[in-house]
């Protein structure tokens, strides 16, 4: 099975599961068309499209195999995926840390660490990352809290 077929299966499962959940939606007697009708139509449509995606992938794979070749994938450096993964990981950690450390401390840490991880591993770059992080957070703080009066999250730590 190809990627599209797997996606089709997952979406079909999702649509069937959500369709079952529509039974939980309260349906008042005073309306002729209940709040469950429209989601059911959409879920039916998604299920149909998922089956079509699955079928199209299976048919295309047969055809491609017959022609003796698949679609050429773009060659992407392995380090690129590492960077993407690292960014998601650090951003998840940053989001979790904001309520604890507060916006300022969490953001300085996040900006400095991520920019250091994505750049060259030298002392000069590390200093530059810290500098960028402090200047950026100071500018954001002044702009949002000082000028726009938007209170940024505070942490629970003193």
């Amino acid at each position: 099975m190809g990627r599209d077929a797997i996606t089709g299966c997952l979406l079909l499962g999702l649509s069937l599961w959500l369709y079952r959940q529509t039974a939980e939606i309260p349906r008042p007697h005073f309306v002729s068309v209940g709040p469950d009708v429209y989601p059911r139509i959409l879920l039916g449509l998604l299920a149909g499209l998922s089956v079509a995606l699955l079928g199209a992938d299976l048919l295309n794979r047969g055809g491609r195999r017959g022609r003796g070749g698949g679609r050429p994938e773009a060659r992407i450096h392995r380090a690129s995926y590492r960077d993407v993964f690292l960014t998601y990981l650090l951003f998840g950690g940053y989001t979790a840390l904001i309520p604890i450390l507060g916006f300022r401390a969490a953001t300085v840490s996040f900006v400095a660490v991520l920019s250091w991880c994505l750049g060259p591993k030298t002392v000069r770059h590390a200093v530059l990352c810290l500098l960028v992080a402090f200047v950026f957070v100071a500018a954001v703080h002044l702009m949002f809290e000082g000028y726009l009066r938007l209170l940024l999250p505070r942490g629970i730590l003193p």
Binding site: T107, F110, V111, L114, S115, G119, F136, L150, P153
Partner: peptide
Amino acid sequence: VPLQFLVPVILVLGAIGAYA
């Protein structure tokens, strides 16, 4: 401006936009 500085800065601004 190198991407290593743009990425965290943009992500933080995006997070502020969502929070606000």
